[in-house]
Simulated scan of single mutants.
Amino acid sequence: MTVLVLLGVLALVVGGCACVVWAGRGGPRWVRAVATVTLAAGELVRRPQKSRRQSLKGTGDSDGG
């Protein structure tokens, strides 16, 4: 069951990436909509990682060297 869920997620990711590439070449409206959703989802996934990295930088070496 887990394998099927992971395969479904993988198919969505690959399809979303294909739509981003196709939209970059001037695809139809629905492709641009899927590409927009894909890029927004990517930003949502990256945002917590960026804030986590910044908080780790602030608590890192404070000796300056």
Rank of each mutant, 00 (worst) to 15 (best):
19 C>E: 04
32 R>A: 11
55 S>L: 14
12 L>G: 12
11 A>M: 07
29 R>T: 07
26 G>A: 09
45 V>T: 07
47 R>P: 01
27 G>W: 05
60 G>R: 05
20 V>C: 03
26 G>F: 11
46 R>L: 14
13 V>I: 13
65 G>F: 00
58 G>C: 07
34 V>D: 04
48 P>I: 00
38 T>P: 02
64 G>W: 00
55 S>E: 07
56 L>C: 04
2 T>P: 04
59 T>F: 12
36 T>Y: 13
36 T>Q: 10
31 V>Q: 09
27 G>C: 04
44 L>R: 10
50 K>N: 10
30 W>D: 04
27 G>Q: 03
24 G>H: 06
61 D>P: 06
48 P>L: 01
11 A>L: 10
59 T>K: 11
31 V>P: 02
53 R>V: 00
44 L>F: 14
8 G>C: 12
31 V>M: 10
52 R>E: 09
19 C>L: 02
49 Q>W: 15
20 V>N: 04
16 G>Q: 03
24 G>S: 07
47 R>S: 13
4 L>C: 03
40 A>E: 06
57 K>G: 01
8 G>Y: 12
43 E>Y: 14
60 G>M: 05
24 G>L: 05
1 M>A: 11
36 T>C: 14
44 L>E: 07
21 V>D: 05
55 S>R: 14
34 V>A: 13
47 R>A: 14
30 W>K: 08
7 L>S: 15
62 S>Q: 05
15 G>A: 03
47 R>Y: 15
32 R>E: 08
21 V>H: 06
37 V>G: 03
38 T>N: 02
48 P>R: 04
63 D>N: 04
28 P>M: 05
19 C>P: 00
17 C>N: 09
29 R>P: 09
42 G>P: 08
10 L>T: 06
44 L>I: 07
57 K>D: 00
46 R>V: 12
59 T>R: 11
63 D>A: 02
58 G>T: 04
15 G>Y: 01
58 G>L: 13
5 V>D: 15
26 G>D: 07
18 A>Q: 08
28 P>F: 06
1 M>D: 08
62 S>W: 02
65 G>K: 00
14 V>W: 05
62 S>P: 03
39 L>R: 10
40 A>L: 15
62 S>A: 06
33 A>H: 09
32 R>Q: 09
42 G>R: 01
12 L>D: 09
39 L>F: 05
32 R>N: 04
29 R>K: 09
56 L>I: 02
1 M>Y: 07
3 V>A: 15
25 R>D: 08
7 L>T: 12
41 A>I: 12
9 V>R: 10
32 R>I: 01
44 L>S: 11
55 S>W: 13
18 A>L: 11
45 V>M: 15
10 L>F: 11
31 V>L: 03
11 A>Y: 05
16 G>L: 04
53 R>A: 13
7 L>K: 15
30 W>F: 07
38 T>G: 00
20 V>E: 11
42 G>I: 04
41 A>D: 00
63 D>I: 00
26 G>Y: 02
40 A>C: 10
